[in-house]
Design a binder for these strands. Structure first.
Lengths: 131, 131
DNA sequence: CTCGGTGTATTATGACGTTAGTACAGCATG
DNA sequence: CATGCTGTACTAACGTCATAATACACCGAG
């Protein structure tokens, strides 16, 4: 599925939320697909079920997941993506953070772009492989 | 100087640490320059002095800052940059995070690169303007 | 119906980051 | 010397995050 890093500065439930979004936009999870149960994913990621539950709850509120009680959680038929404005805000914030750390260690824009390109492909390939 | 976001997931002292590194690599702070006092910067950023103190302390341990008691904190004559291996690790991690969020919201690599390029220039320009 | 799985809610606990306040040691300036 | 600035250290408090242990409501399968 995907990994999670407890040492990371961003909370685990957010990593799970973003991880699930990645799986969907990469096609590893398709509309109507059954998502691992809270307890299963918690075991798999070696994380507390409550932490997974929080991520699932947020995704459900956002319309990305739908819940059938007693049956499981599924990817919504039309996974509501973020509006373009919100999407741009998210991307811009992330870009600012990345640019900031790149500059802070003296990396050039080309360096940053190269590393980004490599990482982008890497993430895509890993997900393609596991699906 | 630079800004700080309490809502960010990464701790404030780390934002200050990276911000100072940016100032140095961008030339806004040069070796031998006097750095704002802990209390001054704390007032300016609307942050607790202890938070600034922690960032300064780390930078001092890393050889980026040197301290003259009763006088102030200065940029070290030869600000010891990170080793190439560490530098690459930091950049790679940051790139992975950025790529992950970009993919999670369905942004293409080109989108991510464009936004990165824009943000990189923006950070550079802002620092140039303030120096 | 019963059983097992699902999501959900609640409470308690420990670790961590941040803030606030206070206090101390050292140096420069007057 | 005395004052005021510097960095540094310590404690208490609060909020968030993650964990843990339950308990409940719901649904499908047997």
């Amino acid at each position: 599925m995907f990994n999670v890093n407890p040492g990371e500065s961003s909370p685990i439930w957010r990593q799970i939320e973003e991880g699930m979004r990645r799986m969907i936009t990469l096609g590893a999870l398709r509309p109507g697909d059954l998502v691992p149960s809270v307890r299963d994913l918690a075991l798999q990621l070696r994380v507390n079920p409550n932490t997974v539950a929080r991520a699932y709850q947020r995704l459900t509120e956002q319309g990305v997941f739908t819940v059938k009680r007693g049956e499981g959680t599924f990817v919504a038929d039309q996974p509501s993506m973020l509006r373009r404005s919100e999407r741009n805000d998210v991307l811009r914030d992330a870009a600012m953070r990345y640019a900031g750390t790149a500059i802070s260690i003296g990396a050039s824009l080309d360096d940053a772009v190269d590393e980004l390109s490599s990482s982008y492909d890497k993430v895509v390939r890993e997900h393609r492989r596991k699906s």
